[in-house]
């Protein structure tokens, strides 16, 4: 069945935008891992591309949720979740841009430096909070179960990845990765969890 008019962004659905975000994220990870790009600020700035792609992803997902909700209550919690994620993703973009700009152009020290470094992390905490609220607020037990399954898969992916990478790093086999990559792995795990949901239950869960 073709997508209804108004479903998606630029004629593309959420999975197209999710694919684009994952692909660009993969390219950036590859550039960082291979040493093609060594400057961390530049890598962080490049992360703005996949994160910017999250905006059309969530807008498309929101439109799809609205289109399929049709008053049966399905879209309400997910719509709030999407709005919250868009808000914190935008705050993250601003925080990373501010941190990168000020650390590159101004000699930041002390409290200012700490605050600038904390802001992006707090924005990511906001996204994690939004996922937690989705689990609390979702009144549809099946959809809630799908989201919980996604977070369990994501946690497994992130913790397994961190454990294996940590010991490989300790043995000087792989390069050092900053701790926030655990969160990146967790978000990738959410995608894997959605695929697992689709295979087992015929529905994706939350984007």
């Amino acid at each position: 069945m073709s997508a209804p008019v108004g479903n998606g962004v630029l004629g593309r659905g959420p999975f197209f935008w999710a694919g684009m975000a994952l692909m660009t994220m993969g390219v950036i990870v590859a550039l960082g891992m291979t040493g093609a790009v060594e400057q961390k600020p530049l890598l962080l700035l490049m992360l703005l591309v996949p994160l910017s792609l999250m905006v059309p992803l969530f807008v498309a997902a929101s439109r799809r949720a609205d289109a399929s909700g049709q008053g049966c209550g399905k879209g309400a919690a997910q719509a709030r979740y999407i709005r919250r994620v868009i808000l914190f993703a935008e705050l993250y973009l601003i925080a990373v841009a501010a941190m990168t700009y000020f650390t590159k152009t101004v000699e930041t020290q002390g409290v200012v430096r700490v605050v600038l470094a904390l802001l992006p992390g707090f924005a990511i905490v906001g996204v994690l909070w939004a996922i937690g609220r989705l689990i609390v607020e979702e009144s549809d037990e099946f959809m809630r179960m799908l989201v919980i399954r996604q977070t369990l898969v994501a946690t497994a992916v992130a913790l397994c990845g961190a454990s294996i990478w940590g010991f490989l790093e300790a043995a000087d086999i792989v390069p050092h990765l900053d701790a926030y990559w655990v969160v990146v792995a967790w978000f990738a795990g959410l995608g894997a969890g959605a695929v697992a949901n689709r295979i087992q239950f015929g529905a994706w869960g939350a984007v």
Binding site: S68, G69, Q70, G71, C72, G73, K74, S139, D140, E141, F142, M143, M145, Q200, F201, G202, A203
Partner: peptide, 29 residues
């Protein structure tokens, strides 16, 4: 499925999952 979902206050995906035996509803549902 949408009609039933609206009357139950759940998503169409929930009705589909229950109908196809992929998901067992809770006792309240």
């Amino acid at each position: 499925q949408q009609d039933l979902a609206e009357q139950l206050g759940v998503s169409r995906q929930s009705v589909n999952a229950i109908e196809t035996g992929r998901y067992d509803p809770s006792l309240p549902l």
